[in-house]
């Protein structure tokens, strides 16, 4: 395989030594079919073992290796190096505090995800003896797309609302909540409604559509959030009408 070198400019930051992130350049002999991650692993193994980055599955499903590559959030294990010129800038995901080098802090996301109750809620729990619930292929298709999120956080790094409003629950978490609301087996939409339509909920989204643009799994969180807005407005309107009727 043909080899040539590229300059990989990596953002470095060690809180024990650095006041602020800085850029460090590495000259990496790359192969034609390499992904960005392979260049980082080359640096780690052969040039500088002090570089810290997260990665694992290297097949675009574990969601560990999201980074900003030349300013755009990318899953580095599926992003071909050949898409870039002779100098490639790799930085930690934007919109997240940086723990070290390319490693960002995800605690905030996990709190937001948990707050949205991303699990099946039922008035009465099903027992295993009842067997599997029936769900038609059409009912499955109602939410399947939004269940494909790998939590890679590219959408948070791209979202201008996340940048300005730290309490915004954000694309991936809201899409996951909406996925459960759409699931024919779930009855928890009402319990998710307050947080979904509250401060930092779906109505904070101004539909920049950036999350959908950068999503490597075609989840389209922007679509989920707009659908959730519509569903919330409709359910609010319905409850209003029902109340009025009940009152009269």
């Amino acid at each position: 395989m043909a080899e040539h070198t590229k300059i990989i400019a990596v953002t470095r930051f060690d809180p024990e030594r650095d006041d602020a992130p800085r850029s460090q350049e590495y000259e990496v002999p790359v192969q034609e079919d390499w992904k960005v991650l392979e260049a980082l692993n080359y640096i780690k193994d052969h040039l500088d073992p002090t570089l810290s980055h997260r990665w694992s599955c290297r097949m675009a499903v574990c969601g560990s290796c999201g980074m900003n590559v030349n300013g755009e959030p990318k899953l580095t294990c599926r992003e071909p190096l050949s898409n870039y010129g002779e100098r490639v800038e790799v930085a930690p995901l934007a919109n997240f505090p940086v723990v070290r080098d390319l490693v960002v802090e995800l605690e905030g996301f996990l709190e937001k995800l948990g707050a949205l109750k991303p699990w099946i809620m039922l008035a009465k729990q099903r027992a295993p003896e009842e067997g599997a619930t029936r769900q038609s292929p059409a009912e499955l298709a109602d939410f399947k797309q939004f269940s494909m999120c790998i939590n890679c956080m590219l959408c948070y790094a791209a979202c201008p609302v996340v940048a300005n409003e730290p309490d915004f629950l954000g694309p991936a978490a809201l899409a996951t909540a909406h996925r459960y609301n759409l699931d024919s087996r779930d009855e928890g939409a009402a319990q998710r409604a307050e947080i979904m339509r509250g401060e930092g909920g779906v109505f904070s989204c101004s539909y920049a559509n950036e999350c959908a643009e950068v999503c490597p799994k075609n989840v389209d969180p922007a679509g989920a959030i707009q659908q959730a807005k519509l569903a919330n407005v409709l359910s609010w309107a319905r409850s209003f009408v029902v109340r009025r009727r009940a009152a009269s």
Partner: peptide
Amino acid sequence: MAPPRPPDRFPAG
């Protein structure tokens, strides 16, 4: 920790 940085290409992208 270093504070979050806004999206890299904002607003010129």
